[in-house]
């Protein structure tokens, strides 16, 4: 074979196997995210007899219970996202920049790691057993002050009570994410701000918060989604006392009384839409907040 023969042959393209590394992720995303989403979309337009209908979608905007469920879910998600973010941020600040002993930081990190994953039935039971109608703390308060909390109108089985329960896993998540971000604030930035005549307010207003904003926004959207999609904790805690979208979906798909899978899928589609909107808002804010980042 001479040189001319070699030149006349097209170069052999080498197979690129790099994509194999990310294939499991894409397979996972297709099987457990895209296909279920497609299925939800398709079934949202299905009546109980299998025929095509717009009734389920129309119900989202016309049935009062459903509108209220979305309102309550959004309220709880917003309250616990903002509350968890503020409380978690302050806690992370105290641990990282508050000059506390190193041991406290280790303890807080471990606690946050556990607490952020402590949800569902065990969490609901823990609150019922401590602050429920016959809970340990409730009885203790009643015994000490000789009062009846129920007669005073105190109950944790409402939106605010559920918000407190959710906060138990929301703020530790904030601590876990914000602690490294606060660690990333360099001492020189504070000193430079001070050297240029700034005080603590100026530093936080113009330097630290804008630098932390992408992390704050990211965590808040995570907390929002965390609360918005929570089902087991709410169901175990309140049964169907609190009208949440997730509980309504459960009732429509599994319930004996309200069985209407098409409506359940439409409710889920509504949740996907709201999360999509939140994500779009997040991306827009993130772009503005992080335009200084590489």
């Amino acid at each position: 074979m001479n040189v001319a023969d070699n030149l006349s042959k097209p170069p052999v393209k080498k197979m690129n196997w790099d994509w194999v590394g990310v294939a499991p992720f894409f397979i996972f995303a297709i099987v457990f995210l895209f296909l279920p989403s497609l299925s939800i979309f398709y079934r949202s337009f299905q009546a109980n007899d299998g025929g095509f209908t717009f009734d389920n979608i129309i119900a989202l905007f016309t049935v009062r219970d459903i509108i209220n469920a979305y309102k309550t879910s959004l309220q709880i998600s917003l309250i616990t996202a903002v509350g968890g973010a503020v409380f978690g941020f302050l806690l992370a600040y105290a641990v990282v920049l508050g000059g506390l002993p190193r041991g406290i930081r280790t303890f807080m990190s471990t606690f946050s790691g556990v607490a952020s994953n402590f949800a569902g039935v065990p969490l609901a039971f823990a609150f019922i057993a401590t602050m429920g109608n016959a809970g340990l703390v409730t009885r203790w308060i009643e015994g000490i002050f000789n009062i009846s909390t129920r007669e005073l109108g105190f109950s944790i089985y409402n939106m605010w009570g559920l918000s407190i329960v959710y906060m138990y896993f929301q703020f530790p998540l904030m601590v876990l994410i914000m602690a490294p971000a606060l660690d990333g604030l360099r001492r020189e930035w504070r000193e430079a701000a001070e050297n240029l005549g700034g005080n603590t307010y100026h530093y936080w207003r113009y330097v630290a918060f804008p630098i932390l904003m992408p992390s704050l926004l990211g965590t808040m959207i995570l907390l929002f989604g965390n609360a918005f999609g929570a089902y087991a904790t709410a169901y175990a805690f309140s049964g169907s006392f609190i009208n949440l979208v997730t509980i309504l979906i459960g009732a429509q798909i599994q319930g004996d009384v309200l069985y209407n899978p098409g409506l359940g899928n439409a409710l889920a589609l509504g949740m996907i839409f709201i999360m999509g909107l939140s994500m779009a808002g997040y991306v827009w804010m993130q772009r503005r907040a992080a335009r200084w980042m590489r």
């Binding site: 360099r186 020189e188 930035w189 000193e191 430079a192 701000a193 113009y206 330097v207 804008p210 630098i211 200084w292 980042m293």
Partner: peptide
């Protein structure tokens, strides 16, 4: 380390 404010 320069200490420029990265957000500005």
């Amino acid at each position: 380390s320069y200490a420029l404010f990265p957000n500005m």
